[in-house]
Amino acid sequence: MTVKHLEILLADDDTDACAFFEEALAELPISTRLTAVHDGEKLMQLLNEETGKLPHILFLDLNMPRKNGFECLAEIKGNKKLNQLPVIILSTSYEQEVINLLFQNGAQYFIRKPSAFAQFKKIIQYALMLITEQDVTPPAKDHFVLTVENSQPV
């Protein structure tokens, strides 16, 4: 999958988080267009629209009202039309059980949001690069978690 322009969908109920994300994308040397939704139901509605084109990547927050990130991930991966969509999880917390569960449920990568903005930008850029340069194959488990340190171009 090599594309010049990336359609990115972000599902996060926190508008500040969305603003940071947008700001980070704006500063990256990649052509992107960001669509943001603020709850899980909206996300699934958008993805299930007959006419709508699927985004290239979904960044998914876990704690959302109406339908949380786990439910959305399960629905996406259980849906033949949607299950090729790469889902990258964004989370503030780092819990091994949660990470194992997400990996099992077919998420592409897990990102623990770093607190420094520069690192956040770097990790988003790395994730986008991985998605555009590689086929959507399930990653090895030890590369499932993206961190600032391993986000150096390989």
Binding site: D16, A17, T92, S93, S115, A116, F117, A118, F120
Partner: peptide, 20 residues
Amino acid sequence: SHDLQEPLRKIQTVVTIILE
């Protein structure tokens, strides 16, 4: 504590944005 992380992370992010 889970809920506390989010605003804290925001404060940290904003601080880095301002410093940059």
